[in-house]
Design a binder for these strands. Structure first.
Lengths: 217, 217
DNA sequence: GTGTTTGGTTCAGCATGGTGTCAGCTAAGC
DNA sequence: GCTTAGCTGACACCATGCTGAACCAAACAC
């Protein structure tokens, strides 16, 4: 997850910065609003942590202009203990969440993952390859924006290949992901399903690497 | 918006209750978890306000089972000032937000509208598909502008499918949204309801994806 | 109380389409 | 050319899904 941190306090800022990195996310830390605006213009973030206590007090404007521009990126605002009114105004201006300073870093983390979870539901992991768009979680698939129905076995083969996209996947690997281990299938089932997939998705979508396996892209 | 309020404190509860009503929303106020579970079984809420400080301390279980059943209804938890750990666990268990008691009613309202805003983006109130027009929040349904009455179970199945419109919804998912946690039903109930829905709404409205689930559109 | 209606759940028998298998074919590599 | 690997149409079988009907429980009328 790529996070934009807008915070002028050096001590708190670097603590948060380090913490988010330790959680495995990427951070851009901006100490001034004009820098933040610039960063927003050039990069797509998945989360913004916005300090509303900045000296110039224009953090809310940034938030409002984001929402006015129909940018739905989740924003968590941070305020000092006594700024209840600011907090309310922030939420009404389109913030998704807030943290009251001083806050527990564990709490920050919980909020991060809550927002990340929420966000990941909205922005479906949509894969687009050539004229195909594939949504694995919804099991929906479109070719030239026309829906295509796959059977469950066909899905199994497709996801197995997509999970290792770019790599060459051995036929045995695919077979193992199809049939719970043990149940040996002495046949060319995988070949059959690849054939069926090609009929539905297009000839060149899955390439055969002779005597090694199959590959997508 | 229909809100389920779970709060055992009479004073605070009735204050919140009145406040939400004053804001133009509907509230069901439950003082015990078993009542709340019952309410959840029969009604679809758009927001749940859950007090994690209930005497039996099983509020978290309710929340977890909701999420386990893939119920995405926004949940705001309330905790006392000193229960930071509970709060964090709540967020990690799938709560969308929290309020620390004692909280400002203005703050409650800001959170309500924040959640409502977020929610309204997801579920459009009026849906039109083919010759059907469906209003989920009012539970009204028309086919060629002729009203159709559905039973509550039929609604549950329909809304479950519509909420993930376009996606393939597994039968188990639908079952989970029908029968809140615990109550295992060993039968083909979902099939029966789909069959009845098709009889009322038209043959082709819900499509079967064999061994995967059902799909609308 | 009885009778009726309404909706939920279960079951059985039937229909159907996905699955696995094979045979005959094509294409690749040498 | 030959050999081997992979492709694909055809098909039988049976798990999966459909649906009418029966059965219950709760609500309601009288």
């Amino acid at each position: 997850m790529r996070v934009l941190l807008i915070e002028d306090d050096h001590v708190l800022g670097s603590a948060i910065n380090d913490y988010i990195i330790a959680e495995g996310h990427g951070v851009d830390w901006m100490k001034r609003l004009d820098e933040a605006q610039l960063a927003l213009d050039t990069t797509n973030y998945e989360l913004i942590l916005l300090d509303l206590g900045l000296p110039d007090g224009r953090g809310l404007d940034l938030l409002k202009s984001l929402r006015a521009a129909d940018n739905q990126v989740p924003v968590i605002i941070t305020t000092a203990q006594d700024q209840v009114a600011v907090r309310i105004e922030g939420l009404n201006s389109g913030a998704d969440d807030y943290l009251v300073k001083p806050f527990d870093l564990g709490e920050l983390n919980a909020r991060l993952s809550a927002v990340a979870r929420r966000y990941s539901q909205v922005a479906a992991p949509q894969i687009t390859i050539a004229d195909l768009s594939i949504d694995l979680s919804r099991k929906s698939l479109r070719k030239n924006s026309k829906a295509i129905i796959l059977t469950s076995r066909e899905w199994a083969v497709l996801t197995c290949l997509l999970r290792k996209r770019g790599a060459i996947v051995a036929k045995a690997d695919i077979e193992n992901s199809l049939y719970a281990f043990g149940a040996e299938v002495a046949s060319n089932a995988v070949e059959v399903y690849v054939s069926r997939l090609r009929k539905k998705l297009g000839k060149d979508f899955i390439t055969t690497i002779r005597s090694m396996g199959y590959q997508i892209e």
